[in-house]
Design a protein around this nucleic acid. Structure first.
Lengths: 330, 330
DNA sequence: CTGTTAGCGCTTTCAT
DNA sequence: ATGAAAGCGCTAACAG
């Protein structure tokens, strides 16, 4: 089934069919009807590649994640898929594996595929490279605030959220609060750590550097960090992990040592992954609206492609209090 | 940068460049060198769409999952991405949302995008439809065993694994074993349930239908199922959940009632999600090699496209014993 | 409003 | 072994 056959069957020219398909120009009602019937009769679906070649658009947008199998990114991907699908665009997912050079390579792959735009979910690529790419095609990037033509960034208030999380523990009476930070190279991790420091300082509490451990944003990282803290015989009653996965690992490490959550240690995570509702005990966490983030990124991309202005949307981070944090005893 | 410019720069015809790019024919060493230099100098990347239009191949394969954000599917997607990327193919992911009609619709979308093949991860589409599609393009389907030209299926021994899981509990001395099954419409769920029944029967234990609850393969389903069982005042010391997510929900429900795992109830899941290593206690589960499954599916697709024979590979399901199951006391 | 005419960048006969 | 030429299916000026 080709557009030409549709045209023949409807008794019009190919251009007319194209116009109707794309809404490029007004067409007389009669012809439109005829074409629509022909399309239905023939079960015609435009060839996306031919369209792309001729029109210069591929109807696909590239999405760079760090790890396609990470629960946090996944929620975002779902949001992206949903928003893009509505406009007939298909997402092309690639993983950067937390590696700047691999990420650059994947980006080249997307460019070769002539994607109409690229959404970068918390990438490691530097700002300058991004800005350069933005000159050739629309870019939406999350996790940093960047200004530039053809580029839209969605940043979340990580510092403030890190502050709030720590503050939550302080308000529960905790004074010895440890922090498992994420990799120092990621801006998110640095901001959350900065928030932690500010909350402590503002409350007049000392910042004990030995209470700060670094993890890899995975469960193992949390586990190792806690084991390390415990071996150093440092005590603490509050613990703020820079993401939920590390909180899970930390929780297991505590369980192994017979330290109870929340009775002995209050634990707060970050991300509020869907699974955090079902840990034992259910985890208190800073909710990052991952799905919404993806959806907004997708919609922004669509607007960018069409040259429309993008409305500013607020993505509030909020603390979801569950059962892993408790007022300090005594 | 187009192929023509490369040809001009290398002093050859476009066809020659094309031949070198695709390895379609032997080309004299001198010209090949010249072309390769031109490609490097110009940083040329073939236009995938033009290629697709002319050659009839899109260098992309469609992947239908039920839920792009489910941890199990995700591991598989990662495997698919890895195997496909090596051959220059890109996966196009779509979600069927456990809904047969939506799945059919998504399939049509993939066909319209002229994918070179479709991988169906445990879909709900009926066998006949799949066989029909297989006549037009390569299909790889997991979770069922189906024979046909242009079609390759990878099935896992779900019944046997269900049997093994139940058997594990029986061997630990449990006689009252409950089962949280998945949706009856899915073959996986039915098979696991059948294995559960067989293990009980073979061991001479009665199959108490009241001890079988159905869930939706999500955490909520497990939680609800256990609440239901508990309200009916049925007692049991062993529990087999048809997937890990439902096991998580069940574990929380038990925690809420003050029933300890594994001291009071031994719990075994299915899938062995990465996160099951970090639950409290770490979950005993039947390991489904999701990543390998994806990888094998991707490789099979590549072979199918190239008309090569597909080697039979065995995907063993095995029980990973952790700390959520224990010998029955007393 | 609508048809005609060029391509988009590449692959693939068909000659040579 | 290699070049010339004819499309793949569609969009986008350009004329009416």
């Amino acid at each position: 089934m080709t557009l030409e056959e549709v045209a023949r069957r409807a008794g019009v020219s190919p251009s007319t069919v194209s116009r109707i398909l794309n809404g490029t120009a007004r067409v007389r009602e009669g012809k439109r009807k005829a074409v629509e019937r022909a399309i239905a009769d023939l079960d015609y679906h435009p060839n996306v590649m031919a369209r792309g070649l001729a029109g210069g658009r591929s109807m696909s947008v590239g999405v760079i994640t760090q790890d396609i199998a990470s629960p946090f990114f996944n929620e975002a991907l779902k949001g992206i898929e949903d928003s893009l699908a509505r406009a007939g665009y298909a997402p092309l997912f690639v993983s950067g594996h937390w590696n700047a050079s691999k990420e650059t390579e994947r980006m080249a792959l997307l460019v070769a595929r002539r994607v109409d735009g690229i959404i970068v979910l918390t990438g490691m690529i530097d700002d300058a490279t991004l800005l350069t790419h933005a000159q050739r095609m629309p870019i939406v990037v999350t996790g940093r605030s960047l200004q530039g033509p053809g580029l839209f960034s969605i940043s979340l208030a990580n510092e403030q959220a890190g502050y709030d999380a720590t503050r939550h523990l302080i308000e529960l009476g905790h004074t010895r609060i440890a922090h498992i930070a994420g990799p120092e190279i990621t801006a998110d991790a640095r901001d959350r750590l900065a928030g932690y420091r500010r909350a402590l300082t503002e409350a007049g509490l000392p910042v004990d550097e030995r209470l700060i451990a670094f993890g890899d944003f995975h469960e193992t990282g949390g586990l190792l960090a806690i084991n390390h803290l415990l071996e150093s015989r440092l005590n603490f009653t509050g613990l703020f992990a820079a993401n939920d996965q590390m909180a899970y690992g930390a929780r297991l490490a505590l369980y192994r040592k017979g330290i109870r959550v929340p009775e002995d240690v209050s634990l707060i995570g970050f991300d509020d992954l869907p699974s955090s509702l079902y840990t034992t005990p259910p985890l208190t966490s800073v909710r990052q609206p991952a799905y919404d983030l993806g959806k907004i990124a997708g919609e922004a991309m669509l607007r960018l492609i069409q040259g429309q202005p993008i409305p500013v949307t607020d993505l509030p981070l909020q603390i979801i209090v569950r059962e892993s944090t408790l007022r300090r005893r005594g």
